[in-house]
Design a protein around this nucleic acid. Structure first.
Lengths: 220, 220
DNA sequence: GGCGCGGATGAAAGAGTTCTCATTCGCCTT
DNA sequence: AAGGCGAATGAGAACTCTTTCATCCGCGCC
């Protein structure tokens, strides 16, 4: 079991990451400040680090440099605010292996974690998801139904992927928000409704059923 | 050798498609109106059709319905104007297998043609392109250099893919325009310059060399 | 059958991407 | 060294995608 250190001071986000990683079989430890993070890392006891750059006290970037200066080569995935992408790109020269801009959806972080932990033995990747006569090509972001092939936008794609990976299950708006929009969603928003409509227009209205008071369900 | 019927009334576009398909080993026949197209198709002599919907006289959609009403199951890829996507999606119920919105880049058409001709024996797809210490993940649209991992926009991605598939070669602005922007480019535009700059910002300026009076070259 | 609440819908604001244009930079020739 | 031409650059217009908001619809309870 791989051990992952999560360096993040916002409890809500730390919990979001920890819960998801544990559910996928990883061992996790959360720390909220840079100094502690550095101590833990120098023990060499972790297989990967998820590091927020915006820490109080010793910031993530300092931690990263300190770790690398000790020739510790543990893979590092940094988390950064969306509007500081430019700093990030410049700053990555400090030795991170990958990055995510906040807010992010958990699946994307998981994919990056897996990539960094097992660069070699990747299982032959699934590139097409199916349910009945509906299919989704993960590489080209196109969905296919008997009547047509349709291009999807990023959000439509992420949502249809979620529906296909849980075909037949009722998904609540909150579940959908948290998986497709990440941890930073407004619970009062009706984006999900809006995107369900967009998807229905493209793949056919009947394919996504409304379960009143519960959420939406694809197929079955 | 598969035989492909191209139904397109604009000479420039027909030539663009025919040239590309021939260069990739397909046999091609071009016709410019719907009635002739229908005659040819009913011979059953073609393995695939590229069909423009905006034909003079009997339009592409009528041809499609006529063909299908005769139970001819040849794969059909339709071409349609960008602003009529909605008609397209609705109209596809007439029996097309796939579609492209104009203007399109040739590689995308080629990929769709190949997919329709050989649904089974797809070679294990390449998902990562490399040149030296630069790599590009085709599935996630992310480029990686030792200093960083960077997300690319659609155009940046298409252009870097082209550079990587022709690493070490000098590519003229016209070549780049025709491959990345499709047949419908303005020869006087400097989009290529602008996107070269964008790419250089993301993957490092030195990786793309300017060859004065000729074009650009990646690596080597 | 009427009412109330959850869901559907259209429109429009905000953000990122794409593309053009005008200007500046700098290599190469003379 | 000066001039000309090709390339680099910054700014902003146009477009698409994303999101919010206000309003309309219709299912299910009374």
């Amino acid at each position: 079991m791989s051990k992952i250190l999560i360096v993040e001071d916002e409890d809500r986000i730390a919990a979001f990451i920890e819960k998801g990683l544990r559910a996928n079989g990883f061992g996790t430890t959360v720390v909220g400040d840079g100094d502690t993070a550095l101590d833990y890392l120098l023990t060499g006891d972790f297989d990967l680090v998820v590091l927020d750059l915006g820490l109080p006290g010793k910031d993530g970037f300092s931690v990263l440099r300190a770790v690398r200066s000790q020739h510790v080569t543990v893979p590092v995935i940094i988390l950064t605010a969306r509007d500081s992408v430019h700093d990030t790109v410049a700053g990555l020269e400090g030795g991170a292996d990958d990055y995510m801009t906040k807010p992010f959806r958990f699946e994307e972080l998981l994919a990056r974690v897996r990539l960094r932990l097992r660069p070699g033995d990747r299982a032959p990747e699934v590139t097409v998801l199916r349910d009945g006569d509906l299919s989704l090509d993960l590489r080209t972001r196109r969905a296919q139904v008997p009547e047509a092939v349709v291009d999807l936008t990023a959000r439509e794609f992420a949502m249809l992927e979620l529906f296909l990976r849980h075909a037949g299950q009722v998904l609540s708006r909150e579940q959908i928000l948290s998986h497709v929009w990440g941890y930073d969603f407004d619970p009062g928003s009706n984006v999900v409704d809006v995107y369900v409509r967009a998807l229905r227009r493209k793949i056919g209205a009947k394919r996504i059923r409304t379960v009143r008071g519960m959420g939406y369900r694809l197929g079955a």
